[in-house]
Computed example of a mutant assay.
Amino acid sequence: MSTTTHLAAFRKELHQHPEVSGQERETAQRIIHFLEKLNPQELITSLGGTGVLATFGGKEAEPEILLRCELDALPIQEINTFAHASQSRGVSHKCGHDGHMAVLCGVAEWLSQQKNLHGKVHLLFQPAEENGEGAKAVLADSRFQLSPDWVFAFHNLPGYPLGQVVYREGTFTAAVNSLIFRFTGKTSHAAEPEHGINPAFAIAEILQKLDSLSLNDPSNVDMRVISVVHVSVGEEAYGISAGAGELHLTLRCWDDERLRKLENDVKALVHEVAKAQKNQVETSETQTFFANTNDAQAAQLVEKACVEKALDSYKRPYPFKWGEDFGLFTNQFRGCMFGIGAGEDCPALHNPDYDFPDAIIPVGVQAFTGIIQTLQKAHV
Score class of each variant (00 low, 15 high):
Arg224Asp: 02
Gln41Ser: 15
Asn279His: 09
Phe356His: 04
Asn220Pro: 00
Gly339Trp: 02
Asp256Lys: 07
Gly196Val: 05
Gly341Met: 07
Cys336His: 06
Pro18Gly: 05
Gly245Tyr: 02
Val281Met: 08
Glu109Ile: 12
Gln300Thr: 06
Gln373Met: 04
Met223Thr: 02
His155Gly: 01
Lys275Asn: 13
Glu246Asp: 14
Cys346His: 03
Phe144Asn: 01
Ser219Leu: 08
Thr330Lys: 07
Asn80Gln: 08
Gly323Phe: 01
Gln280His: 14
Ile206Val: 06
Ala242Cys: 10
Val138Asn: 08
His195Val: 00
Gln297Phe: 07
Thr369Asn: 02
Gln114Ala: 09
Gln114Met: 12
Asp358Arg: 11
Asp222Ile: 00
Asn80Arg: 14
Lys37Thr: 13
Pro199Trp: 09
Thr45Tyr: 01
Ser178Cys: 12
Leu47Thr: 11
Phe34Asp: 09
His97Tyr: 02
Lys186Cys: 10
Glu236Asn: 15
Trp322Ala: 12
Ser112Asp: 07
Leu301Thr: 02
Pro317Val: 10
Thr171Gln: 10
His84Met: 00
Leu47Asn: 13
Asn279Thr: 00
Ala135Lys: 07
Glu308Gln: 15
Leu328Val: 07
Asp355Ala: 11
Gly239Gln: 11
Phe82Glu: 10
Ala8Asn: 03
His17Thr: 04
Phe201Tyr: 15
Leu74His: 02
Gly51Asn: 10
Asp312Ile: 08
Glu192His: 14
Ala85Pro: 02
Phe181Pro: 01
Ile240Val: 13
Ser241His: 09
Glu246Thr: 15
Tyr238Val: 12
Asp256Arg: 09
Arg25Glu: 15
Ala102Phe: 05
Ala274Leu: 08
Ala298Lys: 05
Glu235Ile: 11
Glu109Met: 14
Val365Ala: 08
Gly243Leu: 10
Met101Leu: 10
Arg89Asp: 14
